[in-house]
Design a protein around this nucleic acid. Structure first.
Lengths: 199, 199
DNA sequence: ACCTGAACACCGTTCAAGT
DNA sequence: ACCTGAACACCGTTCAAGT
């Protein structure tokens, strides 16, 4: 039988005091990650949340589980956003709109896109489930745009995520503003879109 | 008067024993970086080179100076390669050929492209001088291709380096092989090249 | 079931003593 | 001018004791 890796995913505790600490840790973690990136001090996060370091480790046995829990909601929004645009917008418009949102979410804080890129193909990683869901979302939008003949047919979903991750990494490392990010994504889209004949 | 930041650059010692250690440290560093990325253990590098940790710090006061010294030669090759292709090849071919080489050099080891992207716009960083030279090389090739009408005129050199760095980052994080890298760069080029009219 | 914080481990960095 | 390695500092991680 093949080994089925079971990734550690943080569970929100049932007891009231545990749940309070769990929530406070997530708030502190999101703030710390936003300011110092994914390698922010765990000691500081625990202190900011008003708990001892052992409590942090009890709820989040590894840094990756804390990152996963801190980003889960945002990425869930991204997945449901994909269904939304697929219903409301034309295929290419839907895809590019979703790509813009994906790049923003992937670069929520410094280091996140690296963790997500890793988790995409590594089962047994806390963020893998969410990454697989995003992969499906992106692949669906891509396929629709390709069926409509608006995106080059030879582009794979993996390549799409390579482009998205690369754009997100550039955004996080250059601390690019809204305009530069928009422009950069535009360049990427030019590379994958099928150019319609001029007038 | 404006502050002129003077970046620390490692100097090859004049005394024979110092030079031996300096060289041994560079060899050990290149091996360690290739295997463990830019955050490889400095203790291990010193041990591998057969010197005490203090000797490493004497020659390379910061990790950034060691990275700079370990990558200087390779990036010099890249800069002279730019002059080479500018003389030998047609503008767009020269640019794309150089882009391929740049992506490979930028992803020599995990973490390098992040350091270079940082150094590009941060004077006072050891790698800044080499990054500025690369920036000039790339900008020259880009300008020539734009004059020939083969690359979109509105692309800036900074955007070109964003695309190159992004591609290098994807390569280093996905440990992509030669074919995937080639394909990925092709997608980027499609986005910046001016499409010639079909037959 | 959950919390605390001392204790341990690891590694980067400095510096006094040495050649 | 260069080398050594003990000492210090910092931080991640564990775990025995407690509620």
């Amino acid at each position: 039988m093949a080994e089925t890796p079971v990734p550690q995913i943080a569970q929100r505790p049932k007891r009231a005091d545990g749940r309070r600490n769990y929530d406070a840790l997530l708030v502190a973690a999101r703030t710390a990650f936003a300011e110092h990136g994914s390698d922010a001090s765990l000691e500081d996060i625990a202190h900011e949340a008003g708990v001892a370091i052992g409590t942090l480790y009890r709820h989040f046995p590894t840094r990756a589980t804390l990152v996963e829990a801190a980003t889960r909601d945002g990425l869930e929004v991204l997945v449901s956003h994909a269904r939304d645009v697929a219903d409301r917008l034309a295929p290419l418009t839907a895809l590019t709109d979703w790509m813009r949102h994906a790049v923003v979410h992937f670069s929520t804080f410094r280091g996140l896109v690296g963790i997500l890129a890793q988790s995409m193909y590594d089962e047994g990683t806390p963020s893998h489930a969410m990454c697989a869901a995003m992969h499906t979302s992106g692949a669906d939008l891509l396929r629709a745009a390709q069926r409509a003949g608006e995106v080059r047919a030879d582009l794979t979903a993996d390549e799409l995520f390579g482009l998205l991750s690369g754009a997100a990494w550039v955004r996080e490392t250059t601390r690019a503003g809204k305009d530069e990010t928009e422009r950069f994504i535009e360049l990427v889209i030019e590379g994958i879109a099928v150019r319609t004949a001029g007038p």
